[in-house]
């Protein structure tokens, strides 16, 4: 009996030890960094607080560098390039700009020009280039038409080694619809270099995550573009990005009409057919550009553009409150809102 009791005690101790071992997994480290003119929330798992701090400081300086380099009009590499492009002459590009120009040119072509970072002048005209929102009024139709006539596009750029020129003086680069995605990709690259395998980087609502949140997947809530709260959620793991373009992000009102920041390069006016587009993709850069392009494409044409851009998982909420999903998104998404309408499934061509 003594033997029995002691073996029982030993077994209970073992069980408790096993449970405690389950509890001693590393705690995540979280920090909010102000960068890119927004809040960047980073949560990562690291072996020690020192390691976590090293990673966070490095991300902070990377983001700061990217923000300065890619700013369309402040003194920096892109600001300088935008001053030189209208001259039509050859000049040397800042080295960090060539990859972002290269990838955005490819994506712009795949999107049929609906994602077009060459329309910086149009963005300026509307006043959406600054950190403060424009107060209105909307630009004169003649001014918009004059810019559309010049049809600036990424393929107007000619690149030879590190030298670049524009064949079209109307090209002004603005990576507002792309820099966050491209930047988040660079941050994740940096974390992987540092040996971090589990992290989520949320740059003002657009995010990429690697690994898992401890013993479960990362849980992402998607804001309801029709009103308040969360419309749906996604569980993501491995390495995935979730990007949303919504008409509620930046806008101004004039004469009772709302003008938001996603400009249709074909009309020169804010695209007005959908409320939001959410894209799930490995690459933050692709997800970011695609969310903008599909938003501009509107509720009829978006599946064609998604297929061209190689994007499989998409949710579109249109201005009538209707929700459309690709089959790949339908498999993953879970609706959280009580009044979620029956989603329509839209297979890609």
């Amino acid at each position: 009996m003594t033997l029995r009791r002691s073996s029982l005690r030993a077994l209970l101790t073992l069980l408790a030890a096993l449970l405690l071992a389950g509890c001693s997994k590393p705690e995540p480290y979280s920090e909010t960094i102000i960068a890119f003119g927004t809040l960047v929330d980073v949560t990562l798992y690291a072996e020690s607080p020192a390691k976590a701090d090293e990673a966070l400081r490095m991300i902070e300086s990377d983001l700061q560098y990217m923000h300065e380099t890619w700013h369309p009009w402040k003194a920096g590499s892109l600001g300088r390039m935008n001053l030189l492009l209208p001259t039509g002459g050859w000049f040397s590009s800042g080295p960090s700009l060539l990859p972002i120009i290269g990838q955005s040119t490819t994506l712009s072509e795949q999107s049929d020009g609906l994602f077009n970072p060459a329309i910086g002048q149009l963005v300026d005209l509307w006043g959406f280039h600054g950190e403060d929102l424009p107060a209105g009024p909307p630009p004169e139709p003649e001014a918009i038409a004059a810019l559309l006539d010049q049809a600036p596009r990424m393929s107007d750029l000619e690149i030879d080694g590190i030298r670049i020129r524009s064949r079209n003086p109307a090209v002004k680069l603005d990576f507002g619809a792309f820099a966050k995605g491209y930047g988040v990709d660079r941050v994740i690259e940096r974390l992987v270099e540092l040996g971090i395998t589990d992290a989520i980087v949320n740059a003002g609502g657009d995010l990429r995550a690697i690994g898992r949140h401890g013993s479960r997947d990362w849980r992402v809530g998607i804001r309801d573009p029709r009103g308040q709260g969360v419309i749906a959620s996604l569980e993501i793991s491995g390495d995935e990005s979730v990007f949303t373009s919504g008409n509620y992000e930046r806008f101004f009102e004039w004469d009772g009409k709302r003008y938001h920041h996603i400009i249709d390069p074909r009309t020169g006016y804010p695209a007005d057919d959908v409320l939001s587009v959410t894209v799930l993709h490995d690459s933050g850069a692709v997800a970011d550009a695609a969310a903008t392009a599909l938003f501009v494409a509107g509720r009829e044409d978006w599946p064609r553009i998604a297929a061209r851009m190689g994007v499989q998982a998409v949710m579109v909420v249109d201005t009538d409150g209707g929700v459309a999903l690709t089959p790949a998104m339908a498999e993953r998404i879970r609706f959280e809102s009580e009044d979620a309408p029956d989603p329509q499934i839209r297979p890609l061509p």
Binding site: L207, V220, I222, G246, E249
Partner: peptide
């Protein structure tokens, strides 16, 4: 326990 690790918008 947080419901969400991040909110996408």
């Amino acid at each position: 326990e947080q419901d969400f690790d991040a909110i996408n918008f």
